[in-house]
Nucleic acid binder design. Structure first.
Lengths: 227, 227
DNA sequence: TGGTCTCATAGTGTATGCACTGTCTGTGCC
DNA sequence: GGCACAGACAGTGCATACACTATGAGACCA
């Protein structure tokens, strides 16, 4: 055994903890509002509190957690108003990506997007929600990438991650995958046709409908004020 | 003197260091590519390396610095391609903000924006560039705010800050303030008229013209590869 | 003279200790 | 019975120490 344990366990760096913890928050395994105590996390990863604190501060910078001075860090809690606000930003970002896709995707890329979309038809039944959720992320990622604007793609993906715990609730609503598929069709067709304006509008409307479904879910399941 | 010096100097918290350092990077006082050694910064603020490391990691998360494992942190270096890429994202974000302004600003807000813009006419001479630069930031902030979409405003402001060292170079170009003023006029008029589409397009073009002026400046002043 | 190797040094990354703050529980008072 | 206060305790925030890594200068060799 080397003197420092960290060298013996190369898998446990600050970056690794950030990755694992952000996945926990994004997936909802760590619920919004839940305390992230440095000591507990240090025990979990078998490191000291110092690198944990670093990981937590990065989580805060990503917007996935919130730091309250002398009171620790909690998994990000998003008020209903803030949630809609973020979905709105998301709709603008996705609209921009879709618009740029319509202008910039190569023919091959358009075909690949269409094929990808078509392959998801089989997953629109309410008994494939897990698979459809996964596909959905891939589909949107393809659109961020197709815009060929790295920073825009980064901002969009970051916003998506912050909304992830809430977006995923949409597919708990009955028939939502089928609706989602139909909305995707509009987007894909507009991009395939190179119709930038229609692509942007379709993407915007798609995200807003996700927002409404999610809002209804949150309204039904989250107490009005969680403080 | 209290046991902990930090208590005696309440002005030197992690947040303060982040503020000061980010201003240094944004303003160009700390040049892109410049090393940010934790020890030197610790001496500068008279604290230990621990809080400095926290501040630096936040700077990295903001995109204002870059962390290389075991080799420290450097002030963000942006390649010309990346720069254009970020300006493009900026143009999309500003366009969204302007569009929402046209839809959402109250009559009073529209009047205030027009008045604000009109007041800058006196600063368009090439001998007021400092004042015009300052006004310009206020003007754009007003548009981010007027969109009434907190997250969008945050993303836009964050991107602006990352571009700040380069945006500011635009006003070094002769007659640029006057051109900027003319472009602002188009935006303000569209917002005043509630013409969302025109406002978005005007804002997009405005940012893209900033990008071109800045690109020309950077091309003339930054070596091709800084590595 | 040019290239390579070695060692010194500066600086990063992590662990640990200590002082301070916030919170919770139990006790005394109204 | 309800409320305020004091103490214990848990957890944060920072300083410091130590091990490891990257880098550059100087010595050695071809």
């Amino acid at each position: 055994m080397t003197p420092t344990d960290a060298a013996a366990r190369p898998g446990t760096t600050v970056a690794d903890m950030v990755r694992v913890l952000s996945e926990d928050v994004v997936s909802g395994r760590i619920a919004p509002g839940c305390r992230l105590t440095a000591q507990a996390i240090a025990r979990r990863f078998d490191v000291s509190r110092t690198p944990v604190r670093e990981a937590l501060s990065q989580l805060c910078a990503m917007g996935l957690a919130e730091h309250r001075p002398n009171r620790g860090v909690i998994a990000a809690e998003i008020s209903p108003a803030r949630l809609l606000d973020m979905f709105e930003a998301m709709s603008e970002l996705e609209a921009s990506c879709a618009r740029l896709c319509a202008q910039r995707m190569t023919l091959a890329e358009r075909h690949r997007l269409s094929a990808m979309h078509e392959s998801s038809r089989a997953l629109t039944g309410d008994d494939h929600t897990g698979q459809y959720t996964e596909f959905n992320d891939d589909f949107h990622s393809a659109i961020y990438e197709g815009a060929k604007s790295t920073h825009l793609a980064e901002l969009t993906a970051a916003t998506r991650d912050r909304l992830a715990p809430f977006r995923h609730t949409q597919f708990l609503a009955r028939h939502r995958p089928a609706e989602s598929f139909a909305e995707h069709t509009t987007i894909v067709n507009a991009i395939a046709a190179g119709d930038a304006k229609a692509a942007a509008e379709a993407a915007r409307q798609h995200v807003l409908s996700v927002a409404h479904v999610s809002r209804d879910y949150v309204a039904a399941h989250v107490p009005p004020t969680t403080d």
